[in-house]
Amino acid sequence: MTVPIEYYVLLSMALFCIGLFGILTRRNALMFLMSVELMLNAANINLIAFAFYHGNLTGQVFALFTMALAAAEVAVGLGIILVLYRNFRDVDVTVPTTMRW
């Protein structure tokens, strides 16, 4: 007896929307990064659940690649946040307004 696929997808969609909410409301760049991670992991849940549903491993292997890329993205993101902090003494994404949005 397995859990139906719908529940996995609903879980991942909830996670995706929570991540989106975080992106829209958080002003701290680090929280922003964490919200993006939530969205990426929502996709991973989907991929793995669907891999089980379809009975092939494509989704599982791709989820591994997604994790590696998420780590790479965080590395670059933290670098940019570091430079941001050195220039503005803050990690609030609304502080840099040399140019308007």
Binding site: L47, A49, T66, L84
Partner: peptide, 28 residues
């Protein structure tokens, strides 16, 4: 330059998250 990099990165990370989610749905 730093501000531009930050904004480019933030929107890029967001859009790639959305892109991966789209891929996962197409896979589904």
């Amino acid at each position: 330059s730093v501000e531009a990099g930050l904004k480019y990165f933030l929107l890029g990370a967001l859009s790639s998250a959305i892109f991966v989610y789209g891929i996962s749905l197409v896979y589904g």
